[in-house]
Design a protein around this nucleic acid. Structure first.
Lengths: 340, 340
DNA sequence: TCACACTATGCAAACGTTTGCGTTAAATTG
DNA sequence: CAATTTAACGCAAACGTTTGCATAGTGTGA
C-alpha cells in the first residue's frame, strides 16, 4: 500500500479543513456549491480515493455482508450467491464469501472471523455436519443480523428464506398422478436433512390424498443424491417384479441417472415411466427427454435473503424477532413426464 | 452494531494498559506468560472479539482480496472462485466477490470500489466488453497487486494465470487424428477473444502438422458457444454433402448439442463422427456417450492465482514486474472419441 | 444602527488498535 | 555493592474520516 492521497492532503492543497473536504465530497448542504466544485476538481486531479476502512472504523459500519456456504462450486449455491451479489451491489453492500466445505469446525472458525471482520450482516447455509447452531448466537449479541437459506437451523429462531419443499413435492407427485401414474416411486435424500424429509412427506401426502397406496418398496433412500446413487436406485427399480410408472426424484442428478439407466434398459420415458426431478439444473434442459422438474428459485433465494438482511441491518426500530419467508416454486413440465 | 468489548475494556478490568493487552493477545515475547494467561482468560470470559477494522486501519493491511468475475453462476468461474477461497482461507485472507456481468461500465465501477475498500490484492477475469484495461492501472499506482486469469488483458503487462489454449487444442485435434479421423471440423468461439482464437489456431496447427487439409467449410463460427448455437452448427454439418468424421468443439456445451443432434439424425458417435469438447463440465461425464474433453484446471487456476497474488502482496523486495503462469491441461478420453 | 438569522467553514475529539520509546523494578555482573 | 543489563509493562502518538459544536462573516429587518 503506497502513499495515498487523503482528505488532509486535499485540505492543505485547498487551504480548507478536512471537515470541509469531507462534507463537500459528501454533498453536505452547509457547503457552498463553489467549494464543492473546487474540492471535487482537486480530488479528481490528485486522484483522491476515499479510504473506506477509515470510514468504516469511524462509522462502525462496513457495508459488507458475510456469506457462508457449504461449497461455491455447487450450482445451486453459485446461483444463490449470484443473487446475493446482485442485490447487494445495487444497495452498495459488498459480499465476502466463505466455504464451510460441510465441516462444522470450519463453519465455527468462519463465524469467528466474520465477527472480527465487523460485517454488517451474515447470510448462511448450514453445513451438513451442523446439528447445533450455538456458534451463530454470538452474532445476535453483537447486533449482527443473520439470515439462513436452504439448510436452515431448526434449534433456534432465526430469519430464514426457504421454499416449500413439502408443497413442491406434493405438486410434483400430483402432476404424475394427474398424468395417469398409479405406481409412483420416490428417490429420497438424506432424511436427517429437513428439506429432503419434507420432500418425502409431500410425496406421501399426495399419494394419500389421491388414495394411492404408499409402497415402501418404491421409495429408495440415498445419502447425498449423487448421480451414482441414482444409478443404483434405477437398477433396483429394474430388479423389481413390477416397475413403477412414475418416479419423483428429490433432485435432478438422480432423475437424470434414472432416465439414462432406464433408457439403456429399453424402457420408454415417459410412456412406460414418467420422471420428475427437483431443482431445474441446467442439465434438465439438455438430457433427453428433457426433464420435468421443480424450479427452486435459487437466484431469487439469494435476492430475498439479501433484501431481508439489509432491511434487518437498516431498520433500527424493528420489533420483529425473526422472519421466515417461503418462496413459491414452479413446476416445469417437460418431456420426461408428458403423457398424451 | 452493539457495544463491543475492546482492548481498553480488558485493560481497565485487569489494571493493565491497552498496549500490554494487545501484545499479550499477539503473543509478544516481552509479555510474561502469567499476564498472557490472565489476559486470555479475561478475554474469553468477557467474550472479547478483536476489531479487525481498527487493526486494518492502523496496519494499512486488510487481508482481503477483491475478485472480479463476469458471472458467479458460470460453472468455470464458480470452480475458480472455490480454488481462490480455499487457498486464501488457508493463508488467512478473505475474499470479496463482484460480478461484472460482462459490463464494462460495471467493471469500472467495481475497480473504483475495490480501491476505496483497500483490498490487499485483486484477481480479475475481464468482461467480454473490455477492450482496454486503463481502469486497472490505478491499482499499480496504489501498490495493489493484480492477477488476471482466463480472459486476460492483452494491452498491458500484468500477472496472468492461463492455460495453453493453443496446445490444448492441438492435443485435442491430434487425438482425433490419431484415432483415425481424416475430416476434422471445429466449432469455434468468438474470435475477438484470445483464448478462442488460440483454440482455432491450435486446431489448424495440428491439421497442418499431420498434413490434413484445412477445410473452412468444416469450421463453424459462433458468438458465445451456447448450447443453441451448437445445435445450429450441428445442423449445418448435417447439411454438408459429406460429414466430418471428427469434430473438436471449443467448449462442452456445443459438443453436447452436436452429440444430441447427430444421434437424433441417426449418426453413431464415435463410430461415424468422433467428438471432443473443452472444459470438462459436469455434463461431459453424463452425456451419452461420455464426452472426451480437456480438463481446463479451473480450481487449480483459482489456487494458482491466489498463490501468486499473495506472494506479490507479501514479497516487498520483488524486482519482477509481471509473471505469466501457464497451467498444464489434460486430455480426458471418454467414449465420444474412443475408436476401436 | 443594533440585534438577529443564516451561511460557510474550522476545531477538536473520537473510533480501537499497534508500536517506538521510555520507565520501572528486578536480576546479573564485575 | 555499585553498575549495568534485562524483563515487563506504560505512555502517547498515529492511522483517515466524521460530526457536534463553535466561529467568522454576511445579509436582513425593525
Amino acid at each position: 500500500m503506497k502513499n495515498r492521497i487523503t482528505l488532509k492532503d486535499l485540505a492543505k492543497d485547498l487551504n480548507l479543513s478536512p471537515s470541509t473536504i469531507s462534507r463537500a465530497l459528501g454533498n453536505h448542504p452547509a457547503i457552498s456549491d463553489a467549494t464543492k466544485k473546487r474540492v471535487q476538481k482537486k480530488a479528481d486531479t490528485l486522484g483522491f480515493t476515499p479510504n473506506s476502512i477509515a470510514s468504516s472504523f469511524r462509522m462502525k459500519k462496513t457495508r459488507s455482508l458475510g456469506i457462508i456456504v457449504p461449497r461455491i462450486d455447487i450450482h445451486f449455491h453459485s446461483l444463490v450467491i449470484s443473487g446475493i451479489e446482485d442485490y447487494a451491489y445495487k444497495n452498495n453492500y459488498n459480499v465476502t464469501i466463505f466455504q464451510s466445505k460441510n465441516s462444522l469446525k470450519r463453519e465455527k472458525e468462519i463465524t469467528k472471523i466474520l465477527q472480527t471482520r465487523m460485517v454488517d450482516g451474515v447470510i448462511g447455509c448450514l453445513s451438513i455436519e451442523t446439528k447445533s447452531c450455538d456458534h451463530f448466537k454470538k452474532f445476535d449479541k453483537l447486533g449482527v443480523p443473520l439470515v439462513f437459506y436452504d439448510r436452515v437451523p431448526t434449534d433456534f429462531d432465526a430469519n430464514k428464506i426457504v421454499i416449500n419443499d413439502f408443497e413442491s413435492a406434493y405438486t410434483a407427485t400430483k402432476h404424475l398422478i394427474k398424468s395417469g401414474c398409479k405406481r409412483i416411486g420416490h428417490i429420497a435424500g438424506n432424511q436427517t436433512t429437513t428439506i429432503f424429509n419434507a420432500r418425502l412427506e409431500g410425496y406421501k401426502a399426495a399419494l394419500k390424498k389421491y388414495k394411492l397406496p404408499i409402497d415402501e418398496a418404491l421409495i429408495m433412500h440415498t445419502n447425498n443424491l449423487s448421480y451414482d446413487e441414482g444409478v443404483n436406485c434405477a437398477k433396483k427399480y429394474l430388479a423389481l417384479p413390477e416397475l413403477p410408472d412414475g418416479i419423483f426424484c428429490a433432485n435432478d442428478y438422480t432423475a437424470v441417472s434414472v432416465i439414462q439407466v432406464f433408457r439403456k434398459g429399453g424402457i420408454n420415458i415417459p410412456q412406460q415411466v414418467a420422471i420428475v426431478g427437483f431443482s431445474n439444473y441446467p442439465i434438465s434442459r439438455i438430457i433427453e427427454p428433457n426433464l420435468t422438474t421443480i424450479n427452486d428459485r435459487a437466484f431469487q433465494m439469494g435476492e430475498a435473503s439479501t433484501k431481508l438482511l439489509i432491511r434487518k441491518i437498516e431498520d433500527d426500530n424493528d420489533i420483529i424477532d425473526s422472519e421466515i419467508i417461503t418462496l413459491k416454486t414452479e413446476l416445469i413440465i417437460r418431456e420426461s413426464s408428458k403423457l398424451n
